[in-house]
Each structure stands twice: as structure tokens, then as C-alpha cells.
Design a protein around this nucleic acid. Structure first.
Length: 270
DNA sequence: CGAACGACCTGCAGGC
DNA sequence: TGCCTGCAGGTCGTTC
């Protein structure tokens, strides 16, 4: 469900309920996520004050003075603000109980999400090898070109590789390639430098626009405030196979690349 | 090193 | 109505 814009929307939604507050307890109803939640985690967080909430790629970082809680939402996870005493529903696996305030509730039907605590997030194995943040200056065409050189993998698979750039998932990879006019199956090493420049800009644009809309709600995504995202209506190609391209009218196609659904306009994208 | 692919898990839509 | 198949926003680990 969540790519960078959805995680960022979640971050913005939950921040006001966490920053400066004290975690009273962590209630774990089901620890069987992608990796089992460490049984010692509640004790580590109890009575700790949140100093900030940030994001790295698709990871949410809840910062404390003694370390950082890394939360990943996987494919179907969400973190929402709920008043104390609201009965947990199906798949509500974790509650972060906050002193004198509403709780944060983690729901994840597919259980691909994760919770980790680390005192050195920069060196944590899940974060250490992430590529640059797409909205930061560290993400740029020259570096991207250097990494793409000689790579035979498709440009789409390439930009979905978190080690290349962090946080670009299936929806926004498709959308950015459409904006950049690049065929998703083109070998990464065969995209001209000038077009990589355009791709960097397209990725930035599409992510920024999606964040402004509060993310994309496909099935059930809602931000921390419980509101859906409205970027869906702006999607140019994602899940639009069979429909006319908004730019040229050609029928949008779907194919599979690296086991992921891929959508493109065969005329606008080369 | 890169590339391909299976694995993890649940819910839902669509076909019969 | 029920059963079966395929598909879904991610990404790690294994194998070649």
C-alpha cells in the first residue's frame, strides 16, 4: 500500500500526537510481522519521550533520546490515531499508548510490516544501504547515470531498487516513467543522460504532487488522520490499462516486469 | 557483482 | 452460493 508519499502522509498525520510526548506502553497483540517484533520492545519504549518523527524512504522513524523505532508499513500496513478505549479491530496488531493523549494503532492485514528499535539508525541493516532520498539534492542525474552504467535491468526495476533511490514503489515508478516519456522496459544503462535528468525531475514532481494530495488511496489507505489520499485521480497510467492515454489517446498497456504490474503508453514512452 | 525468482500473508474480485 | 485462481502499494534471501 504505502510508498513514499503515503508514508510521508502518515508521518505528518501522526507527528502531532507523538512529538514531545511520552510512550506509556506498547501493546502488541500479534508479533508475527515480517520479522517477529522483539518481545523486549515494550520495555525499551516505556516512559520514553518522542523527540521527533522522520522518514527514510518508506521507513517511519520515531526518534527517542536513547534510539529510534523503525516502522515499515509493508504492503498493507497503516498507522492511525485512535482515542483510548476504542476496541481493536481485526489486524490491529500494535498500539502505541501515549500518555495523556490518543494512541497510535498499527493495522496490517498481510503482516509484511515491521518494528525495529536501534540506537544507531544510520548503521541499521535495513537503512544502511538505502539510496538517496528522491526529494533531496543527493538524488541527481549524474550519480544516477553512474549507477545505471552497464545495467541491463529495466529502468523501471532500476528505480524501484531502494539501493538506487529510496521510496519509489510500483505506482510512482510507473507514473514517473510516463512523465519522463521513457519506456519502462528500456535497459537502465541505455537511457540517455539527458533523459535521466528528466526522470529525476519526474520522480520528484510525481512524489511531491502525491504528497500534496495526501497520497494515493487504491484500496484502503488512509493517513494518520483517517482521511484517504486523493492522488488516484491524477494517475496517468497506473491501473489504466485499456484506457486511452491522456496525452495521445493510445491505449495504455499492461505488462509484467520483475513480477510487478507495469503500465505505459506505447506511443509516449520510448 | 548483477539478475531472476521464490518467499512471506491476507483479502478481494472475477470466472465457473 | 461456493470454490478456485490470480492479483495487490514491498523487499529480503537464495540461487545461478
Amino acid at each position: 500500500m504505502p510508498e513514499l508519499p503515503e508514508v510521508e502522509t502518515t508521518r505528518r498525520g501522526v507527528s502531532p500526537y507523538l512529538v514531545g510526548r511520552v510512550v506509556e506502553d506498547l501493546q502488541i497483540r500479534d508479533r508475527r510481522l515480517r520479522w517477529p517484533i522483539d518481545a523486549g520492545l515494550p520495555a525499551v519504549l516505556r516512559n520514553a519521550r518522542v523527540t521527533g518523527v522522520s522518514r527514510r524512504g518508506k521507513y517511519l522513524l520515531v526518534e527517542f533520546q536513547h534510539g529510534t523505532l523503525l516502522i515499515h508499513l509493508g504492503m498493507s500496513g497503516s498507522l492511525r490515531v485512535v482515542e483510548r478505549g476504542i476496541e481493536p479491530q481485526r489486524h490491529d496488531h500494535v498500539d502505541i499508548l501515549v500518555r495523556d493523549g490518543p494512541s497510535l494503532r498499527f493495522n496490517d492485514p498481510r503482516r509484511f510490516g515491521s518494528f525495529h528499535f536501534t540506537d544507531d539508525p544510520g548503521r541499521h541493516p535495513l537503512l544502511a544501504h538505502l539510496g538517496p532520498e528522491p526529494l533531496d539534492a543527493g538524488f541527481n542525474a549524474p550519480d544516477l547515470a553512474a549507477r545505471a552504467r552497464g545495467r541491463k535491468t529495466s529502468i523501471k526495476t532500476f528505480i524501484m531498487n531502494a539501493g538506487v533511490v529510496a521510496g519509489v514503489g510500483n505506482i510512482y515508478a510507473n507514473e514517473a516513467l510516463f512523465r519522463a516519456g521513457i519506456h519502462p522496459a528500456r535497459a537502465a544503462g541505455r537511457v540517455a543522460p539527458a533523459r535521466l535528468e528528466g526522470l529525476v525531475e519526474s520522480i520528484r514532481e510525481v512524489l511531491r504532487a502525491a504528497i500534496e494530495c495526501g497520497g494515493t488511496t487504491l484500496r484502503d489507505f488512509v493517513g494518520g488522520d483517517g482521511r484517504p489520499g486523493y492522488f488516484r485521480q491524477s494517475l496517468a497510467v497506473y491501473e489504466r490499462d485499456g484506457d486511452p492515454c491522456r496525452q495521445c489517446g493510445t491505449t495504455i498497456r499492461r505488462r509484467v516486469l520483475a513480477q510487478r504490474a507495469t503500465y505505459y503508453c506505447p506511443r509516449c514512452q520510448r
